Amino acid sequence: MGSMATGKEATLHQRILSDIENQIVSGAWPPGHRIPFELALAEQYDCSRMTVNKVLTQLARAGLIERRKRSGSFVTHPQAQSAILEIHDIKSEILSLNLPYSHKLMKLAERRGRSEDSRRLQFAGPVTVLEITCIHYAGSRPFCLEDRVINLDAVPEAANADFASLPPGPWLINQVPWSTAEHQIRAISAEGEAAASLDVAKGTACLVVERRTWSPSGPITHVRLTYPGDRHSLVARFTPAS
């Protein structure tokens, strides 16, 4: 009888765990949503509060919820990490959070370069660019806004690429060998289109990562990645200088 009870308890534990995980991953319970109290969950699943407590503890250790004394348990704002000195893949960042990835192409325009494009690409001569805007999603929530210009004189194949199916970042990495990259990192307050695209209030603190890449023949691309500040962090690992 004891082993049967243990087996039933383990099965119920997994069922409650899966149900709550699905609510979070699907976006039905967005960041900040309060999880039902232990007593309510115990009544819902006809189990002990101890079983529910173990489930919530496991979810907190996994980083999916935050438990606050006297307030309850809340869905966390998922935060991905990427290395400063690497060209990171946004899809991998999102999948590392155990959330489904998708992206939406918002703008695609081929045009002659303007002074702003020359500044972004750090290129003095005339240039033809492909301007691209994408939103990357973690589950149902916007995770990152990508604003990019590609130098079509250096990468003419980009004009015919299907960026609705494959985001420009991984496409470029697979298509064009790069020799040099530069990162700039800053904080901004979300305004206008950025706030609307990321579904955050105006004035929300955001992290902006700007990156330029070059090949031996010249500039390839400049991209501006904007993250709500609570959804991303940057890390670097280094050793003492010799």
Rank of each mutant, 00 (worst) to 15 (best):
A5L: 13
G27N: 05
A28V: 09
A28P: 01
P30Q: 07
F37T: 14
E38S: 10
L39R: 15
L41G: 01
E43Q: 15
M50G: 14
V55Y: 02
L56S: 03
T57A: 11
A62N: 13
G72P: 01
T76S: 08
P78R: 02
A83Q: 13
I84V: 14
L85D: 15
E86A: 10
K91Y: 02
E93S: 07
P100I: 01
Y101G: 01
S102K: 13
H103Y: 02
K104M: 09
L105A: 07
L108F: 12
G113F: 02
S118T: 11
R120S: 09
R120D: 08
F123A: 04
V127P: 03
I132D: 02
A138H: 00
G139N: 03
R141N: 07
F143D: 00
C144D: 00
L145I: 04
N151D: 14
A159H: 06
S165Q: 14
P168A: 12
P170Y: 07
W178Y: 15
A181P: 00
I185Q: 06
A194N: 03
L198S: 00
T204P: 04
A205P: 03
A205L: 10
V209E: 04
R212K: 14
R212M: 09
S215W: 04
S217T: 12
P219G: 03
R237S: 13
A241I: 11
A241S: 11
